[in-house]
Measured scan of single mutants.
Amino acid sequence: VKKMAKAIMADPNKADEVYKKWADKGYTLTQMSNFLKSKTAGKYDRVYNGYVIHLD
Rank of each mutant, 00 (worst) to 15 (best):
K43F: 11
N34C: 13
P12W: 15
M4E: 15
T30N: 12
D45F: 04
Y44Q: 02
F35Y: 09
A41T: 12
A15K: 06
N13G: 12
T28E: 03
Y48K: 03
V1P: 06
K6N: 13
M4W: 09
D45V: 07
V47P: 01
K21N: 13
G26M: 04
T28N: 06
M32R: 00
K3H: 09
L36Y: 00
G50Y: 04
A10I: 11
V47M: 03
Y44W: 08
K6V: 07
K39T: 14
Y27H: 02
K21H: 15
M9I: 12
L36I: 02
S33M: 12
N13K: 12
A7E: 13
A15Y: 03
V18R: 01
N49A: 14
L55Q: 02
K3N: 09
S38M: 05
M32I: 15
D11P: 02
D56E: 15
Y27E: 01
G42A: 05
S33D: 10
R46H: 14
I8H: 01
M9R: 07
T28Y: 02
H54V: 06
R46F: 15
V47Q: 01
Y27V: 03
V18A: 06
Q31M: 14
Y51P: 03
K14W: 07
S38K: 04
R46G: 13
A10F: 10
K6A: 12
K14V: 13
E17K: 08
P12V: 07
N34Q: 13
D45H: 05
A7D: 10
V52M: 13
A10W: 09
H54F: 15
Y51L: 03
M4Y: 06
K3Q: 11
I8E: 01
I53V: 13
Q31A: 08
A7I: 13
S33K: 15
K14G: 06
Y44R: 02
N34E: 15
E17Y: 11
D56C: 15
P12Y: 10
M4R: 04
D16Y: 13
I8Y: 00
T40D: 11
I53W: 09
K43E: 14
Y27W: 08
T28G: 05
K37W: 09
Y51W: 03
K39C: 11
T30M: 12
Y27N: 00
I53C: 11
E17T: 08
A10H: 11
K21W: 12
P12R: 07
A15P: 01
K21P: 00
L55R: 00
A7Q: 12
K25V: 11
A23H: 10
Y27Q: 01
L55S: 01
L36T: 01
A10G: 08
V18K: 02
D24Y: 07
V47H: 01
Q31L: 06
K43L: 11
K6W: 09
W22L: 01
D16T: 13
T40V: 11
S33V: 10
Y44N: 01
H54P: 01
K25E: 14
S33E: 13
G42H: 09
K20T: 10
D24R: 08
K20C: 07
R46A: 15
N49W: 15
A23P: 00
L29G: 05
Y44T: 00
V1G: 03
G26W: 03
N49Q: 14
N34T: 10
A41G: 10
T30R: 10
H54A: 08
E17R: 08
N13H: 11
I8K: 02
K6P: 02
G50K: 04
I8D: 02
